[in-house]
Design a protein around this nucleic acid. Structure first.
Length: 422
RNA sequence: GGAGAGUUGGCAGAGUGGUCGAAUGCGGCGGUCUUGAAAACCGUUGUACCGUGAGGUACCGGGGGUUCGAAUCCCUCACUCUCCGCCA
């Protein structure tokens, strides 16, 4: 969430940046400031009363020790009222703090100045295209190729679980492992440290990276325990650094992790859900960085090029989009999407989303660093898919189909152990 | 799942109702000494909020309670450890 101090000090700038979002948040910012004024006043009064109480308590103790029981009793009587006032102000202060928080959690991150104003993905700005898509006559969509070569089976998955839980088979299963391993090895080579986090997280963790309360209902929730299945490795990996105070020398923190991801995708049925286009469980390798605020945008560019390198080595046709304000996630200040072209479906599939959250997550994570003046400053967090598997698989199958079978990209061959699927 | 013991500052570890934001040791930072370093010695060393400032307030796993006063007593939850049970 946005920093209170920022809202107070840079009110107009934040209003301007937030105005790009579909909803107007100017009033909310003003309300936050007004509530914060009330909070300060209450805080001040409370402190005074507490101070009074502390000194009274101290003298009661002293008086008893000196045997002056009567005097002690008389001061004790005075504290009764004081105690009530403290309780009263304390609870009203808590209420105000809660109101501030309730308001703050509904305000999204302020879009970066380069974010184009817009409503839907139609308004995203294509900043790079890798060339013209290859043309294949009578291209077969990946779900039919999967049947033909026994690569994955959605019906089987729906028997075991429900719609959107693919079962990967034979070379399809091997291809998953190959991609995961190649993605991981590439990231490690690029300086990322591998982690394997839990797949279930508690509410505090989900709150800190912004999934709660914004995406409540999009995560699978456990029945017996207050845990959520992770929708992305971003959640547990970024939270590794919750409540940490770093030193500048720690930057950049670079982590990579492979996890399955679970998404309910409530409300998105019907469209674009065939085959692997949108499933409830999928595999993803995620890269996360924690960076100095001055360097986070350079890091974002670096991460985009890194992901671009991956799709490029896979030989896929891709384009990079700068998300417009309407398509920008709640927690992000600037997001680039990597999209690959799917020949049979004749459309672009989003395979990676790379975002700079600035201090939005750090504020909830309480992730800071000590600067040279020994002040604690919120760090910036970033992450990106590197990469999500299903749509990469979809594009690979469709784009690489030939009469002789499906050609496996060279970089993957050491991992698959086969060169074609036939 | 059952029984028991714990959770204190960066770490280790005292503290069982008032003088405790918290002894002591280690580590970190600054200094003295030294050609340099080590050792020794001296000083300093948590986070957040309120206040222009002096200063004040809160925090000893989380939440609640008892009390004039709680790190210390009670309740509750989470976590850690030991033993038993079950199990990959």
């Amino acid at each position: 969430m946005l920093q209170l101090s920022d809202i107070r000090n840079n009110t107009e700038e934040l209003k301007k940046r937030l105005a790009k979002r579909s909803e107007d948040f100017a009033d909310k910012l003003d309300s936050v400031i007004a509530l914060d004024d009330a909070r300060k006043e209450a805080q001040h009064r409370l402190n005074e009363l507490q101070s009074d109480m502390n000194s009274k308590s101290k003298s009661i103790g002293d008086l008893y020790k000196e045997g002056k029981t009567k005097e002690a009793e008389s001061i004790k009587n005075e504290t009764t009222k004081l105690k009530e006032s403290i309780k009263e102000i304390d609870s009203s202060l808590s209420k105000t703090e809660e109101e501030i928080r309730d308001l703050l959690v509904t305000i999204p991150n302020a879009p970066h100045e380069s974010v184009p104003k817009g409503n839907t993905d139609q308004d995203n700005e294509i900043i790079k295209k890798s060339g013209e898509p290859r043309e294949i006559n009578n291209a077969v969509p990946h779900w039919d190729l999967a049947d033909k070569y026994k690569l994955f089976d959605l019906d089987l998955g729906s028997k075991l679980t429900g719609a959107g839980f693919p079962v990967y088979l034979e070379k399809g299963a091997k291809l998953q492992r190959a991609l995961i391993n190649w993605f991981l090895d590439s990231a490690i080579e690029a300086g990322y440290t591998e982690v394997i986090p839990p797949l279930l997280v508690n509410g505090e963790t989900a709150f800190a990276t912004g999934q709660l309360p914004d995406k409540e209902g999009q995560m699978y929730e456990m029945k017996e325990d207050p845990f959520y299945l992770i929708p992305t490795a971003e959640v547990p990996i970024t939270n590794l650094y919750r409540d940490r105070i770093l030193v500048e020398e720690d930057f950049p923190v670079k982590m990579v992790g492979y996890t399955p991801c679970f998404r309910r995708e409530a409300g998105s049925y019907g469209k674009d859900v065939r085959g692997l286009n949108r499933v409830h469980q999928f595999d993803k390798v995620e890269i996360v960085q924690i960076q100095h605020p001055d360097k986070s945008y350079a890091t974002l560019d670096e991460m985009v090029s890194y992901v671009e390198g991956l799709v490029s080595k896979l030989g896929l046709t891709y384009r990079i989009a700068r998300l417009c304000s309407g398509d920008l996630g709640f927690t992000s200040a600037l997001t680039y999407d990597m999209e690959v072209y799917s020949v049979a479906q004749e459309k672009w599939l989003e395979v990676s989303s790379i975002s700079n959250f600035e201090a939005f997550q750090s504020n909830r994570l309480k992730l800071r660093y000590k600067n040279r003046d020994k002040k604690n400053i919120l760090a910036h967090t970033l992450n990106g898919s590197a990469i999500a598997l299903p749509r990469i698989v979809a594009a690979l199958l469709e784009n690489n189909q030939t009469d002789q079978g499906i050609i496996i990209p060279e970089v993957l061959q050491p991992y698959t152990g086969f060169k074609t699927i036939s």
